Simulated scan of single mutants.
Amino acid sequence: MKKYLLLVFIIVVDLLVVMPSLAQKRGKYEFKRNLPVYADSLIKDLTYPLAWGNSDIKDFDVWRKVARQKVFDCMLTPPPAPADGFQMKVLAEEQRDGYKARKIEIRLSRYYTVPAYLLIPDGKGPFPAVNALHDHGAHLFIGKEKMIRPLACEDSLVRADAQQWADQLYEGRFVGDDLARHGYVVFSADAPMWGERGQQEGPKRDRYDMIAGNMMMYGIDLSAYMTYDDIAGTEFLASLPEVDAERIGCMGCSMGGYRAWMLSALSDRIKAGAAVCWMVTTDEQMSFNYSRTENGGFANCFPGLRRWLDYPHVASMACPKAMLFINGSQDKLFPVPGVEKAFKVMHDTWKSQGANEKLETELWDIPHSCPVRAQERVLQFFQKNL
């Protein structure tokens, strides 16, 4: 009986500790739905003075150079390059239908090596190549395995998880493998915090922002490290003898789409880029106009950049390259008015350079996903432009 009463007492004490924290609300507050209550005022003060058309710079090449440097400044300290260049180690290899699949490890920085997959078509190269950039999905257990079917050397949990993710977001198809079957060298690496670059304790989405904040204490931006690695990974791809360095593209869905247009804007190696389900303007994305606000947080955040350039202004640095953007009218993450505004900003830029035919923007009746028909549209785009 005494043990029972003691147990009840402990439970009651625990409830008293927990319940007030759940119920504690003040009559006045300054934040709601993850935004400051003065979000509309902040948006009105975003004038984007460095955007093409807003800037005093009239020469497009000069503008791109200046605007790029501003982006790099906001990306904070870059990871130091490896002392002896890219060093690749092949960890496993297997023959697939028309191409070889390799698991590799590359030293992209003096700080770390990066696990990646590399697909090389059978036959005589050099081949066109694609940097396949994986998504976010609030699912960090796998990274590169979202784009390329895992090799047999991987744990059965990884293989099963990758197939489940492909079924969920890509209608069961591994995008990278399909591109390799069509004659492209395909590279896909884990972004920081995903797959084999994750947390020792296991993937915990709620820890991402805390780790990103801690990284800033070193003068480092975690999202920027992802972009820096995408740039370095593309340089590595261009160095391979199997690759035609003049025919390199990139693609991705969701955060992978964000990575694709960022990489296209910041790397001269990329000749064509395709982004599925990631483009919008800040005034729509970060407002209270819709039931959902930005959830990416630190995954696409460069300190201070919005004071200079909006998302489509950064993407416009890719002009006059060939670019494909597909967004979904049923995509709850990106309000259609913001998507349409962003498309217009980019078309105005490509038109100003006499290259509007190189920019393809499409709004499909799909949710936040990359169905097979979108993958085939991307393949068609690469066949035309690479």
Rank of each mutant, 00 (worst) to 15 (best):
318 A>H: 06
315 A>F: 13
51 A>N: 07
318 A>W: 05
300 N>Q: 10
163 Q>T: 12
65 K>V: 07
236 F>W: 13
131 N>Y: 09
112 Y>A: 15
21 S>H: 06
253 C>R: 01
60 F>N: 08
18 V>P: 03
164 Q>S: 11
325 F>G: 03
100 K>A: 09
259 R>K: 14
184 Y>G: 10
64 R>T: 09
233 G>P: 03
324 L>W: 00
95 Q>M: 12
334 F>I: 01
285 Q>W: 13
301 C>M: 13
157 L>F: 05
236 F>Q: 02
279 M>C: 04
119 L>R: 04
29 Y>A: 07
370 C>Q: 05
15 L>M: 14
292 R>S: 06
71 V>T: 02
265 A>S: 13
87 Q>T: 09
282 T>Y: 02
115 P>A: 08
34 N>Y: 12
217 M>A: 13
29 Y>I: 03
338 G>A: 09
150 P>D: 00
187 F>T: 03
107 R>E: 14
226 M>G: 10
377 R>T: 11
378 V>Q: 08
89 K>Q: 08
15 L>C: 09
139 H>I: 04
185 V>I: 12
319 C>P: 06
164 Q>G: 11
325 F>H: 04
369 S>C: 12
207 R>N: 06
316 S>A: 15
148 I>E: 00
184 Y>S: 10
161 D>M: 05
263 L>N: 11
280 V>E: 15
132 A>Y: 03
48 Y>P: 01
313 H>T: 12
39 A>Y: 10
252 G>F: 00
336 V>F: 02
102 R>E: 11
306 R>Q: 03
344 K>T: 11
135 D>I: 01
208 Y>H: 11
20 P>K: 05
348 D>L: 06
67 A>C: 10
144 K>G: 01
171 E>H: 12
353 Q>M: 10
189 A>H: 14
347 H>P: 01
270 I>M: 04
326 I>L: 14
287 S>W: 09
241 P>I: 07
72 F>T: 09
248 I>E: 07
205 R>A: 10
118 L>K: 07
368 H>Q: 00
118 L>A: 03
156 S>Y: 04
308 W>L: 14
96 R>C: 07
350 W>C: 07
365 D>M: 12
386 L>K: 10
306 R>M: 09
308 W>V: 02
253 C>V: 15
99 Y>W: 11
75 M>G: 10
191 A>K: 06
313 H>Y: 05
69 Q>H: 11
228 Y>F: 15
334 F>D: 08
5 L>R: 14
358 K>P: 06
92 A>P: 05
217 M>N: 10
116 A>W: 01
230 D>W: 13
314 V>F: 03
327 N>D: 10
354 G>I: 14
308 W>A: 11
71 V>W: 00
199 Q>T: 02
382 F>H: 04
23 A>K: 15
244 D>A: 10
322 A>Q: 08
264 S>K: 03
32 K>I: 12
370 C>I: 02
63 W>S: 06
378 V>E: 10
358 K>D: 11
92 A>E: 11
250 C>T: 15
193 M>N: 00
327 N>G: 00
